[in-house]
Amino acid sequence: MIEVENLSKIYQMGGQQVAALAGVDFKIEKGEFVAIMGPSGSGKSTLMNLIGCLDLPSSGTYRLEGLDIQDLKPNQLAEVRNRRIGFVFQSFNLLPRATALENTELPLLYGRVPKSTEIALQALERVGLAHRAKHKPTELSGGERQRVAIARALVNSPAIILADEPTGNLDSATGKEIMDLFQELNEEAVTLILVTHEQEVAQQARRIMQMKDGKIIADTSNGAGSC
Protein backbone atom coordinates (compact mmCIF):
# COMPACT_ATOMS: atom_id res chain seq x y z
CA MET A 1 0.00 0.00 0.00
CA ILE A 2 2.90 2.34 0.80
CA GLU A 3 5.89 2.10 -1.53
CA VAL A 4 8.85 4.34 -0.86
CA GLU A 5 11.89 4.33 -3.16
CA ASN A 6 15.11 6.23 -2.58
CA LEU A 7 13.18 8.95 -0.78
CA SER A 8 15.23 11.91 0.37
CA LYS A 9 14.64 15.35 1.84
CA ILE A 10 17.30 18.00 1.82
CA TYR A 11 16.95 21.20 3.80
CA GLN A 12 18.83 24.37 2.99
CA MET A 13 20.33 25.78 6.17
CA GLY A 14 22.14 29.05 5.54
CA GLY A 15 23.96 27.90 2.41
CA GLN A 16 24.54 24.48 3.96
CA GLN A 17 22.59 21.45 2.88
CA VAL A 18 21.18 19.14 5.53
CA ALA A 19 19.96 15.74 4.39
CA ALA A 20 17.17 15.11 6.88
CA LEU A 21 16.30 12.02 4.87
CA ALA A 22 19.10 10.44 2.84
CA GLY A 23 17.40 7.93 0.56
CA VAL A 24 15.12 5.40 2.20
CA ASP A 25 13.28 2.42 0.68
CA PHE A 26 10.50 0.35 2.20
CA LYS A 27 7.02 -1.01 1.69
CA ILE A 28 4.20 -1.13 4.19
CA GLU A 29 1.20 -3.35 3.59
CA LYS A 30 -2.38 -2.74 4.62
CA GLY A 31 -3.07 -3.55 8.24
CA GLU A 32 0.53 -3.33 9.40
CA PHE A 33 1.62 -1.75 12.67
CA VAL A 34 5.05 -0.17 12.26
CA ALA A 35 7.11 1.58 14.92
CA ILE A 36 9.89 3.95 13.86
CA MET A 37 12.69 4.47 16.37
CA GLY A 38 15.93 6.37 16.35
CA PRO A 39 17.82 9.16 18.05
CA SER A 40 16.68 12.74 17.93
CA GLY A 41 17.45 14.39 14.60
CA SER A 42 17.62 11.09 12.74
CA GLY A 43 14.81 12.10 10.35
CA LYS A 44 11.78 10.34 11.86
CA SER A 45 9.50 13.36 11.76
CA THR A 46 10.70 14.28 8.30
CA LEU A 47 9.74 10.81 7.09
CA MET A 48 6.34 11.04 8.80
CA ASN A 49 5.67 14.41 7.16
CA LEU A 50 6.43 12.94 3.75
CA ILE A 51 4.27 9.86 4.33
CA GLY A 52 1.55 12.17 5.64
CA CYS A 53 1.69 14.28 2.45
CA LEU A 54 2.42 17.42 4.46
CA ASP A 55 5.58 17.90 2.43
CA LEU A 56 7.09 16.74 -0.84
CA PRO A 57 10.42 14.86 -1.13
CA SER A 58 13.53 16.43 -2.66
CA SER A 59 13.97 13.27 -4.70
CA GLY A 60 12.71 9.70 -4.87
CA THR A 61 9.17 8.40 -5.18
CA TYR A 62 6.36 7.76 -2.78
CA ARG A 63 3.37 5.78 -3.89
CA LEU A 64 0.29 5.63 -1.67
CA GLU A 65 -2.45 3.23 -2.78
CA GLY A 66 -1.07 3.45 -6.31
CA LEU A 67 -1.01 7.27 -6.35
CA ASP A 68 2.31 8.99 -7.12
CA ILE A 69 2.34 11.55 -4.33
CA GLN A 70 5.45 13.47 -5.46
CA ASP A 71 3.58 14.56 -8.62
CA LEU A 72 0.55 16.03 -6.85
CA LYS A 73 -0.46 19.69 -6.60
CA PRO A 74 -1.03 21.32 -3.18
CA ASN A 75 -4.82 21.01 -3.44
CA GLN A 76 -4.56 17.33 -4.36
CA LEU A 77 -2.20 16.78 -1.43
CA ALA A 78 -4.77 18.44 0.83
CA GLU A 79 -7.39 16.02 -0.45
CA VAL A 80 -5.15 13.00 0.15
CA ARG A 81 -4.47 14.23 3.69
CA ASN A 82 -8.16 14.70 4.23
CA ARG A 83 -9.37 11.34 2.91
CA ARG A 84 -6.48 8.91 3.28
CA ILE A 85 -4.41 10.06 6.25
CA GLY A 86 -5.02 10.53 9.95
CA PHE A 87 -2.54 12.37 12.13
CA VAL A 88 -1.95 11.95 15.86
CA PHE A 89 0.56 14.41 17.31
CA GLN A 90 2.61 14.44 20.46
CA SER A 91 0.97 17.68 21.57
CA PHE A 92 -2.57 16.60 20.55
CA ASN A 93 -3.09 19.65 18.33
CA LEU A 94 -6.80 20.07 18.96
CA LEU A 95 -8.58 23.36 18.28
CA PRO A 96 -8.91 24.84 21.78
CA ARG A 97 -12.21 26.64 21.22
CA ALA A 98 -14.00 23.71 19.61
CA THR A 99 -15.64 20.84 21.50
CA ALA A 100 -14.42 17.25 21.24
CA LEU A 101 -17.21 16.53 18.79
CA GLU A 102 -16.44 19.57 16.65
CA ASN A 103 -12.74 18.70 16.60
CA THR A 104 -13.59 15.18 15.49
CA GLU A 105 -16.02 16.45 12.88
CA LEU A 106 -13.60 18.89 11.26
CA PRO A 107 -12.01 16.53 8.67
CA LEU A 108 -15.53 15.53 7.55
CA LEU A 109 -16.47 19.19 7.08
CA TYR A 110 -13.40 19.82 4.94
CA GLY A 111 -14.22 16.62 3.04
CA ARG A 112 -17.85 17.73 2.62
CA VAL A 113 -19.01 14.41 4.00
CA PRO A 114 -22.75 14.34 4.74
CA LYS A 115 -24.07 13.32 8.19
CA SER A 116 -20.76 14.45 9.63
CA THR A 117 -22.02 14.85 13.20
CA GLU A 118 -23.25 11.26 13.43
CA ILE A 119 -20.04 9.86 11.98
CA ALA A 120 -17.96 12.01 14.34
CA LEU A 121 -20.00 10.77 17.30
CA GLN A 122 -19.38 7.18 16.24
CA ALA A 123 -15.64 7.87 16.08
CA LEU A 124 -15.76 9.32 19.61
CA GLU A 125 -17.62 6.23 20.76
CA ARG A 126 -14.94 4.06 19.26
CA VAL A 127 -12.29 5.74 21.41
CA GLY A 128 -14.60 5.60 24.42
CA LEU A 129 -15.30 9.33 24.67
CA ALA A 130 -18.91 9.73 23.51
CA HIS A 131 -19.80 11.06 26.99
CA ARG A 132 -17.27 13.90 26.56
CA ALA A 133 -18.53 15.02 23.15
CA LYS A 134 -19.55 18.52 24.29
CA HIS A 135 -16.40 19.18 26.29
CA LYS A 136 -13.65 21.49 25.15
CA PRO A 137 -10.02 20.27 25.15
CA THR A 138 -9.23 22.36 28.24
CA GLU A 139 -11.88 20.40 30.13
CA LEU A 140 -10.29 17.07 29.23
CA SER A 141 -7.29 15.16 30.61
CA GLY A 142 -4.21 14.52 28.47
CA GLY A 143 -5.25 10.96 27.74
CA GLU A 144 -8.74 12.08 26.79
CA ARG A 145 -7.35 14.75 24.51
CA GLN A 146 -5.21 12.21 22.73
CA ARG A 147 -8.26 9.98 22.35
CA VAL A 148 -10.13 12.88 20.71
CA ALA A 149 -7.13 13.33 18.41
CA ILE A 150 -7.28 9.63 17.54
CA ALA A 151 -11.02 9.86 16.91
CA ARG A 152 -10.34 12.78 14.58
CA ALA A 153 -7.60 10.78 12.85
CA LEU A 154 -9.83 7.82 12.13
CA VAL A 155 -13.11 9.64 11.44
CA ASN A 156 -12.50 9.65 7.67
CA SER A 157 -11.56 5.92 7.59
CA PRO A 158 -8.05 6.74 6.35
CA ALA A 159 -5.59 4.36 4.73
CA ILE A 160 -3.01 5.05 7.46
CA ILE A 161 -2.86 6.66 10.84
CA LEU A 162 0.43 8.42 11.52
CA ALA A 163 1.35 9.03 15.14
CA ASP A 164 4.50 11.05 15.94
CA GLU A 165 5.40 10.27 19.57
CA PRO A 166 1.74 10.02 20.64
CA THR A 167 2.61 9.05 24.20
CA GLY A 168 5.44 11.58 24.60
CA ASN A 169 3.32 14.02 26.60
CA LEU A 170 1.49 11.42 28.68
CA ASP A 171 2.36 9.63 31.91
CA SER A 172 3.15 5.97 31.46
CA ALA A 173 -0.23 4.66 32.65
CA THR A 174 -2.13 6.91 30.25
CA GLY A 175 0.43 6.14 27.56
CA LYS A 176 -0.34 2.49 27.96
CA GLU A 177 -4.08 3.13 27.60
CA ILE A 178 -3.43 4.97 24.35
CA MET A 179 -1.22 2.13 23.12
CA ASP A 180 -3.97 -0.36 23.98
CA LEU A 181 -6.34 1.70 21.89
CA PHE A 182 -3.88 1.61 18.99
CA GLN A 183 -3.65 -2.15 19.39
CA GLU A 184 -7.43 -2.45 19.21
CA LEU A 185 -7.59 -0.28 16.12
CA ASN A 186 -4.84 -2.31 14.47
CA GLU A 187 -6.78 -5.50 15.20
CA GLU A 188 -9.67 -3.87 13.31
CA ALA A 189 -7.29 -3.65 10.33
CA VAL A 190 -6.27 0.02 10.65
CA THR A 191 -2.75 0.59 9.27
CA LEU A 192 -0.56 2.33 11.87
CA ILE A 193 2.82 4.03 11.71
CA LEU A 194 4.12 5.27 15.02
CA VAL A 195 7.27 7.17 16.01
CA THR A 196 8.55 6.58 19.51
CA HIS A 197 11.61 6.79 21.73
CA GLU A 198 10.37 4.25 24.17
CA GLN A 199 11.35 0.62 23.74
CA GLU A 200 8.25 -0.73 25.52
CA VAL A 201 5.99 1.32 23.23
CA ALA A 202 7.81 0.07 20.13
CA GLN A 203 7.51 -3.51 21.36
CA GLN A 204 3.76 -3.33 20.81
CA ALA A 205 4.27 -2.92 17.07
CA ARG A 206 4.74 -5.86 14.71
CA ARG A 207 7.55 -4.25 12.83
CA ILE A 208 10.24 -1.86 13.99
CA MET A 209 12.32 0.43 11.78
CA GLN A 210 15.51 1.91 13.21
CA MET A 211 16.68 5.22 11.79
CA LYS A 212 19.97 7.05 11.99
CA ASP A 213 21.25 10.07 10.08
CA GLY A 214 18.36 10.04 7.65
CA LYS A 215 18.70 6.36 6.81
CA ILE A 216 16.90 3.20 7.87
CA ILE A 217 19.57 1.07 9.52
CA ALA A 218 17.34 -1.80 10.65
CA ASP A 219 13.89 -3.05 9.68
CA THR A 220 12.81 -6.04 11.75
CA SER A 221 9.53 -7.78 12.38
CA ASN A 222 8.69 -8.02 16.01
CA GLY A 223 7.39 -11.34 17.30
CA ALA A 224 6.10 -9.92 20.58
CA GLY A 225 3.88 -7.37 18.90
CA SER A 226 2.24 -9.84 16.59
CA CYS A 227 0.92 -11.78 19.60
Binding site: G52, L54, P74, N75, A78, E79, R81, N82, R83, F87, N93, L94, L95, L106, P107, Y110, G111, R152
Partner: peptide
Protein backbone atom coordinates in the same frame (compact mmCIF):
# COMPACT_ATOMS: atom_id res chain seq x y z
CA UNK B 1 -3.88 21.72 12.23
CA UNK B 2 -6.50 22.63 9.66
CA UNK B 3 -4.07 22.11 6.82
CA UNK B 4 -2.91 18.78 8.24
CA UNK B 5 -6.45 17.43 8.29
CA UNK B 6 -7.08 18.55 4.73
CA UNK B 7 -8.05 22.24 4.57
CA UNK B 8 -7.23 23.67 1.18
Amino acid sequence: IRKAIGAK
